Simulated assay, not measured.
Amino acid sequence: MKKKYAFLLMGPDFNTEQHQVCFETGNLISCLYTVRNPEEAKLKITELANSGYGAVELCGAFGQKLADELISLTEGKIAIGYVVHNPDQDDLFAKFFS
């Protein structure tokens, strides 16, 4: 059985039906999915957990609090991480995303 991995991007302008992609190799299915808000993220993470995904990474927009909520929602049964950056780069990130 192939392992399943997903990366979730969150932003209000995504079209969740259109903005997604999956890649399949010999032993792994890797997918990138989009959500527009925390509510959609909670629905998507539940769907992924129920579909056999073993690991999910979250983009930086999620932050630790929402990541912790999603971990609790899945009862800690799948690995969930979230992207962070070096605090020295805060100004660059703020400028880019403003």
Rank of each mutant, 00 (worst) to 15 (best):
Y33A: 11
S98T: 05
H85Q: 11
F62M: 06
T34H: 05
G11W: 07
K44E: 04
E39P: 02
H85Y: 12
E40H: 02
K44Q: 05
V84F: 06
K2M: 13
P38V: 00
Q89E: 12
S51H: 13
E47R: 06
S51W: 09
A6C: 08
K2G: 06
T16A: 07
N15K: 01
V83C: 09
C59M: 04
G60E: 03
I71G: 09
L32R: 04
L48I: 11
V84I: 13
E17D: 15
L58K: 07
I80M: 13
G81H: 05
A79S: 14
I80E: 09
T16E: 05
G52Y: 06
F7K: 00
A55R: 07
A79K: 09
V21T: 11
K44D: 01
V35R: 05
E17S: 15
M10W: 00
P38D: 02
K95Y: 08
D91Y: 03
I78S: 13
E47G: 06
F23H: 15
Y5D: 04
G60V: 02
V35P: 06
G81N: 08
L73S: 11
F14L: 15
S30T: 11
F23Y: 15
F93I: 15
Q89F: 10
A49T: 15
A94P: 02
K95N: 10
L73I: 14
I80T: 09
I71T: 12
L9M: 14
A55Y: 06
K42P: 01
N50A: 15
I71K: 14
V35N: 08
G76P: 02
C59V: 05
K77A: 13
L8T: 03
E69T: 13
F96P: 03
